[in-house]
Structures are given as structure tokens and as C-alpha cells.
Computed example of a mutant assay.
Amino acid sequence: MNGITKGRFEVFSNSDEAPINKKLPKELLLRIFSYLDVVTLCRCAQVSKAWNVLALDGSNWQKIDLFNFQTDIEGRVVENISKRCGGFLRQLSLRGCLSVGDASMKTFAQNCRNIEVLNLNGCTKITDSTCLSLSKFCSKLKQLDLTSCVSVSNHSLKALSDGCRMLEMLNLSWCDQITRDGIEALARGCNGIRALFLRGCTQLDDGALKHLQKHCPELTTINMQSCTQITDEGLVNLCRGCHKLQILCVSGC
């Protein structure tokens, strides 16, 4: 047992007389807890001091979805989670958490540098500042959902292209400040992107698709629903460069 594991289990003492704590190795209890959801983990944390240590161990919090608690999630909750999980956290969904803003996301980015999947769908307080934080601290980010984050602009795409070059999926639906300049920056920096959702990005035109054609050969999915400035010329250019394209939505174009 290494020093870290030993320190984790020092809270267990002879006074912890519960049969389960006597019979099962603490490593096995920790493994069992790793299969529990957020609510159950929080309940287990209230059973005893020993279980509190195990239930709140960062290794149990690698994947968190807070959608069911969206009305209760404030910035400080996200900050506390990030401090608890640290480098363990790989996936976080804050979909619908309207109270979460840039300050808490900056703390999150600083603490959770191994995040790979982040869902901020409907977090309308989010601005370019959050993407700047992600760019600075979260280089392993692969999937980012910014649906309806209407304050996000081309500055965000420039930041992501600089610091999040492993990005494979980006959802910018209804981020109507995005223009061809933002798409150009994204395409140049994140040329491994596979899925791009641009529904309702009404300022995008054929020029944006030309940048994707030049720089994003791995693109397999693109949704441009209601991008009313897109024409046949743009689609022809896109198809000339994106030979792996499998899913194309131009509804409302």
C-alpha cells in the first residue's frame, strides 16, 4: 500500500465496528463506491467518517452530470466540486445550470486540467472569459457544448484554437455572434475536429465552409440548421475537402 492510499485509510480505526468495515478491505469499498451515482455517494458520505472519506474521494468523481439538480447549482458548488475532484474529473455536465458563470468556471478550469468532456448547454451567463480559461488550463478537452451561450463570440473560438487543439466535438448552436472569422480560427487550430454543430449561427456564410474545407479533413458531422446565408457554393466547397463527411444537416437553409 503506497503512502497516499495509507493516508486515505488512516481514518479507519478499531472503533469502526460496522461489520462491513471489518469484513471488506477498504480498497474494495472504494471500488464499490466508484459505481454509485452522485446522490448515492452523498448519502454514503453521511454514514460515518470512514465512509465520508471513501465516498468523497476524487477517484469516484470522474464523471458528473448535474442536470437533475440544475436549479440548485450555483457557482460555489462547481468550485467545491472542482477542488474535491481535481485531476480525476474527466466529464462534467452543467446543462441547464443557469447560475453558473465565468468566475466559477475559471476556478474549475484551474483545478480540473484533465477534463475531456464539458457540457455548458444553456449556461447563459457564460462568456468568452470561460473559453479563455479552458484554453489556458484544459488542453485535453475533446468535447465542448456551448449551446445557447449567446455571449460567446469569435474570441472564444480563437482561444480554443490556441489552447484546446485536441477538440473533436464542438456545439455552437444558437451562438449567433459567431462569424466566418471565428470558424477560420477554429479550423486552423483544431483541424482534428470531427463534429461541429452550428444551428442558428445566422451570420455564417459560404466563406466559413471554405475554411472547414481547407483545414478540417476529419469532419464527419456538421449541422447548419437555419444558417440562412449558406448556399450551394458553400456546400460544394465543403464536400471537396471533407471527404469523411457522413452526417449533413442544412434544414432551413
Rank of each mutant, 00 (worst) to 15 (best):
I247Y: 13
K136R: 12
C175F: 08
D72I: 04
S48A: 09
H243W: 10
F67G: 09
I32N: 05
C112I: 05
N237A: 15
A45T: 08
E233L: 13
N223R: 08
N21V: 15
C216R: 07
D232L: 11
K210G: 07
K158H: 14
K140C: 09
N80C: 13
T147N: 09
S99P: 09
L172A: 01
L89Y: 09
N111C: 15
S173Y: 01
C201G: 00
G122A: 06
V38S: 07
R240Y: 08
P217R: 06
D205Y: 00
N68T: 09
L118N: 03
Q91R: 06
T71N: 08
C201Y: 01
L98T: 15
E74C: 14
L170R: 04
N111Q: 12
L245V: 06
N80M: 13
V77S: 10
L118C: 05
L66M: 09
W174G: 03
K210S: 09
K83Y: 11
G207Y: 04
G58E: 09
D205P: 00
P25D: 08
Q46F: 00
N154Y: 07
H215A: 11
C123V: 01
Q143N: 11
L94Q: 07
S99G: 13
Q46R: 12
S48F: 11
I183N: 01
S251P: 01
L146Q: 05
D206T: 05
K83H: 14
L92Y: 01
H155D: 14
S34T: 03
V236H: 13
C42T: 10
E168W: 00
I32L: 10
R43Y: 09
K136P: 03
I193V: 04
L204M: 04
T130Y: 00
A208Y: 05
Q225C: 12
K214F: 07
G7R: 12
G75Y: 00
M1W: 14
K214W: 07
L41H: 11
S34Y: 00
I64E: 00
Q229C: 11
A55N: 02
S173R: 02
I73P: 03
C239L: 13
I4E: 13
T71P: 05
E17K: 13
N171T: 15
R31L: 14
L146S: 06
N191P: 03
G182C: 02
T231N: 08
G58P: 04
V236N: 08
V78W: 03
S59I: 12
A109R: 06
R240F: 10
K244G: 02
Q213C: 14
R199L: 10
G96Y: 06
L238P: 03
K106Q: 13
L30C: 06
D232H: 13
A195Q: 10
N154I: 00
I4F: 14
S173W: 00
I64R: 05
R180G: 06
V250W: 07
V77H: 13
F67T: 14
L167S: 03
N68E: 15
S48D: 09
A208E: 04
G200W: 00
L56T: 15
I20E: 12
G75V: 06
V47I: 15
F33I: 07
L167Q: 03
S93G: 03
E233D: 10
G86T: 01
T71H: 12
A50T: 12
L66A: 05
L36F: 11
C253H: 02
T107C: 05
G234T: 04
G207W: 03
A109S: 14
I247D: 05
A50W: 13
C239I: 09
L196W: 00
D205G: 08
N2L: 04
Q203T: 10
